[in-house]
Design a protein around this nucleic acid. Structure first.
Lengths: 187, 187
DNA sequence: CACAATACTAAGCAAATGCTTAGCTTAATA
DNA sequence: TATTAAGCTAAGCATTTGCTTAGTATTGTG
């Protein structure tokens, strides 16, 4: 009946995600998306409705992508060591062409803050909370930590990974490793 | 001979800084600056040359403002305790109308990343390095830490304060305090 | 008062933004 | 092969962007 799409949505989303990841939401224009995704604006709007629609799907694509390492954390049974490994995995994950792009979620929170629209914000908080739960899970595997310690330490780990995410954009590899090693000395 | 300016540059800069701090660089338009600063675009351009000019001066204004707490850190003689106090001071500092805006410098690094123009980037790195030096100074006051430990721990503290800065936008006060308390347990 | 030098107002510029539309191409079905 | 529903191209929309300019108001000096 009808003509076939000449692109695969998941494929062009990968490219959109990469662009948003590098430049942030506002600094990525629809024209830039056009070029990077390799399709016409019409197709972008036909498939995703709006620039924000592309972004929301990019977030989902990001989640799928990072699932590789969150899944590893989820399956890990070695407590704090598993979390530490996640920190290193994240560093490797956020690197592309020797340029660290941080974490798309963190970048977005930092860029849009409380101005972000609620749908998006809910999405972002949910992700952050999922990570926190994984941290808690692994903390529980360790020893004799009481429930309050686990809560405190998971909050600590969350700010630490946020810090690593931002720092990855400007610090050297050695500095980042310093930070991770020291961060885990007292857990 | 000539007419007098009807505004005080430092006063309008305070307002510009606050706007950039809340919204970031790209999300702040010259029209918004006009309204917030309470002066016409012409005056903005006459005084500061360009939007970027306003921003650069806003960064300087920020530095002066934060000097209140960096100065306290600089004068402190109590090692790690002084740094910890700086973390708490920073939290209070970044708050305005019960909304945490993080750190203007951190926000900017995170927003513009490697895309930022070199003049601005140099300015930002210099600030970051100054803070790191203050951390080092206080770490040296403590005990028997060797030079390598001091380097590692200062890198760790830098990522920690970055993390706190980002987290302050979304975490509760209690979570932030958890993070700080745990962060300093092993120093 | 008249001048000259600077400031202010407000209109306007080209370019970029997010989004839409008119007209054509494609492809599976009848 | 003709039909028709969907996709594609490219031009264009209103709005916003950073910045400028023409005209007017204000000031201290001669």
């Amino acid at each position: 009946m009808a003509r076939k799409k000449q692109y695969i949505e998941q494929e062009v989303l990968e490219k959109a995600m990469s662009l948003f990841w590098r430049n942030g939401y506002e600094n990525t224009s629809v024209r830039m998306l056009e070029k990077e995704m390799g399709i016409n604006q019409f197709s972008i709007y036909a498939s995703f409705g709006s620039k924000q629609g592309v972004f929301l799907e990019s977030i989902n694509t990001y989640k799928k992508k990072i699932h590789r390492i969150t899944d590893k954390l989820e399956k890990s049974q070695n407590g704090v060591a598993g979390i530490k490994q996640y920190f290193y995995d994240f560093l490797e994950f956020s690197e592309e062409n020797n340029v660290c792009k941080g974490c798309l979620i963190t970048n977005t929170v930092n860029e849009l803050g409380q101005n972000a629209d609620p749908i998006l914000m809910t999405e972002l908080s949910k992700f952050a909370n999922d990570i926190k739960q994984l941290f808690k899970k692994n903390l529980k595997q360790d020893s004799k930590k009481d429930i309050e310690t686990i809560e405190s330490e998971s909050n600590y780990l969350m700010t630490s990974i946020l810090g690593i995410s931002v720092a990855s954009k400007i610090f050297t590899k050695k500095q980042l490793e310093d930070a991770i090693e020291t961060a885990f000395k007292n857990l």
